[in-house]
Design a protein around this nucleic acid. Sequence first.
DNA 1: TTAGGGTTAG
Length: 650
Amino acid sequence: MWLFHHYPQPIRQQHSHTRRHPSPPHSHTRHPTSVTLPPSTTNHLIQTLCKKGHLKQAIKALTQEPNPTQRTYELLIHTCALANSLSDGVTVNKRLMDDGFDTDSFLATKLIDMYSELGFIEYARKVFDGLSNRTIYVWNAFFQALTLAGCGLDVFGLFCEMNANGVKPDRFTYTYVLKACVASDSEVSLLAKGKEIHAHILRHGFEVNVHVMTTLVDMYARFGSVLEAGYVFDGMPAKNVVSWSAMIACYAKNGRAYEALQLFGEMMVEVDDLTPNSVTMVSVLQACGALAALEQGKLLHAYILRRGLDSVLPVIASLITMYARCGNLEVGKRVFDQMRKRDVVSWNALISSYGMHGFGEQAIEIYNEMLRNKIKPSPITFVSILGACSHAGLVDEGKRLFDSITKEHNMRPTVEHYACMVDLLGRANRLDEAAKIVQDMRMEPGPKVWGSLLGSCRIHCNVELAERASKRLFKLEPTNAGNYVLLAEVYAAAHLWDEVLRVKKLLQNQGLEKKSGCSWIEVKKKVYSFASVDEFNPHIEQLHAFLLQLSMEMKEQGYRPETKVVLYDVEEEEKERILLGHSEKLAVAFGLINSSRGETIRITKNLRLCEDCHSVTKFVSKFANREILVRDVNRIHHFKDGVCSCGDYW
DNA sequence: TTAGGGTTAG
């Protein structure tokens, strides 16, 4: 029994000779519930101690009880899990096996749950392996345990074995097996497995079960298969608030914020007796934030207050982030200030809000206040605060905070933290130091780290390092078009047009495409979107004419188009024409035409803001005397009087 | 005995 190697010898010897009723070989006949024995007061005592959470005393009492019942063991196991005590759990496990409960599938289920909760999947595996009569409960518990432990891949073989053994999957089995597809640490994508399970579900008539089908929607959502998720959702015979929320979350998480809001609207208007709850709100707020749809967001805020959902911490964290992403940092701060209770997520939300607005020093102040409030930082806290330092160019502060992860907080920096450091140093044009961090990392630098390095090379036009980083990235993420585009931009800036063409070919050969630019603007509570190549847009001619006129006026004032960002080796004039078609310029023009003076123009872009759009927007903010907020993938740019809040550092 | 959707970052 390797399982018990590290633990004290079982206590059986102490009580075996005190046992008044010698045990028959099989446990069940000896069970006090199945033989008529007077109810044991010790059993009762153990159970009471467990219910009150006095685990140590309960374990002690166990040594006095010769015939613990199944119920006693059940409570003991549960209490060990609650008390997070592996050693006690193992003691109980050992004792119940000695007592002949080793064939008890009910207790086996409980043991598997316990080991899973304690994070010891190998112990759970031992229990599972040692049991011959595996009921559906046992299989389900083990599937769930494997999934939680990130061993999703193991589930499929066992699922086949279970079917081969004639045990029929039930609605719970399917939810666990579907979850196993997404919760696998393995490199292989398990989408294909998920589709197989989908077929299995249909063959066995489970397409009527709301839980199973909702899990299926969620599985497709997590693989980014929005269409499949939609098919499943649309085909569901009955949907409840969870199904709707899952589909809304699917859109919100997969860059389809507009559809998320639409679906939410449909849910509110068309479906009776269905009330969105706090979970729904979180996804909808996310979608508003993604679109910078401030007016929609405010309506949701009012709704949250009416429904009394403002005491739900995740809702408030999403609300703070929504306001910040919509450019309204002050309101977000006010929401935070009014919270009666705050958790680390609330603080993280505020820190990252200040970070995305470029207020690095204030973000650090908030972080220090959080520590003074005795809130323990989470790994995400450090991502947020390092990101804030990066946006504000606070290199030394960032380095100090990074060191504090190990020195002051006894935590280990993750790949994400290293990626933040590479970004921080790289943006600040300290590429050598950034490269050294990558070299000295104690773990494998993943795509995020190399991606940060490549991004910095793009800003500072470092061809050699960009080639090194992209070589690794092309291996790690062969289908991420963004990496090819970044490298091409580095080459274009260096006028290495042959190389630009070579990278473009590489992209084409794999059937990949450059993600096209897209911008959104909210005007009078409606969201309008613009694409860079957008001949179908009804406003396009008007906008082009407007921009052409604007560009001429700006040129008189000293504007020079930043043609280096154009990835085509064409005449300057053509490059200027291409630049004028950028989606954010269309959105700015649309905003100027369709909103009244004094109104802030809020725009969102799906990519990083290009240098030319940045300088044009600065000009516009001055000449049209308008405040313009542009949120790109990285941060918020607040243009006013010809200046941007990022200080041209982004 | 067991169940489905969410929070903060990049």
